[in-house]
Amino acid sequence: MLLKVLIIIICILYIVRYLFKLLLPAIFRSVINNAQQNAAQQQNYQQPKRPEGRIKVDYIPEGQKSKVPDTEGDFVDYEEIK
């Protein structure tokens, strides 16, 4: 009787192990594909399409408008000393 139960338990364990070996990769693949599709959808919602090379400024605060006049200052070249 005990030997019969032990053999049945071992057979069940081997069957479960075989099923996991077959089904687990498929389950992981489907979970990963769903996560990739969700990430792609979120990225499409977050980045609206606009023409490349164009910049649009919607708002400039009052205090941030050009503090230095355009006539002031020039660009000065410099050399890096090592």
Rank of each mutant, 00 (worst) to 15 (best):
Y45A: 04
E79H: 04
Y59M: 04
Q64H: 05
G63K: 09
A40S: 09
L3R: 14
L13D: 02
L23G: 15
D58Q: 12
E62I: 11
M1I: 14
E72H: 06
D58F: 14
Q43V: 13
I32D: 05
Q43L: 15
E79Y: 03
I12L: 08
L22Y: 03
D70S: 13
K65A: 02
K21T: 10
L6G: 03
S30E: 08
A39G: 05
L2W: 05
I7W: 01
A26K: 13
I7F: 01
R50M: 13
I60Q: 00
Q43G: 09
R54G: 01
D77Y: 11
I8P: 02
K56Y: 09
L3E: 13
R17I: 12
G73N: 00
I9S: 03
E72W: 07
D70C: 04
E52M: 02
Y59S: 03
S66A: 13
P25Y: 02
I9M: 03
Q36C: 06
V57I: 02
D70G: 09
P51L: 12
Q42T: 13
L24I: 15
N34E: 05
V16D: 00
L24R: 11
I15M: 10
C11Q: 07
N38M: 07
C11P: 03
L2F: 12
Y78A: 12
F75D: 12
Q37M: 10
A39P: 03
V31M: 15
N44T: 14
R54A: 06
F20Y: 07
G63T: 10
G53Q: 00
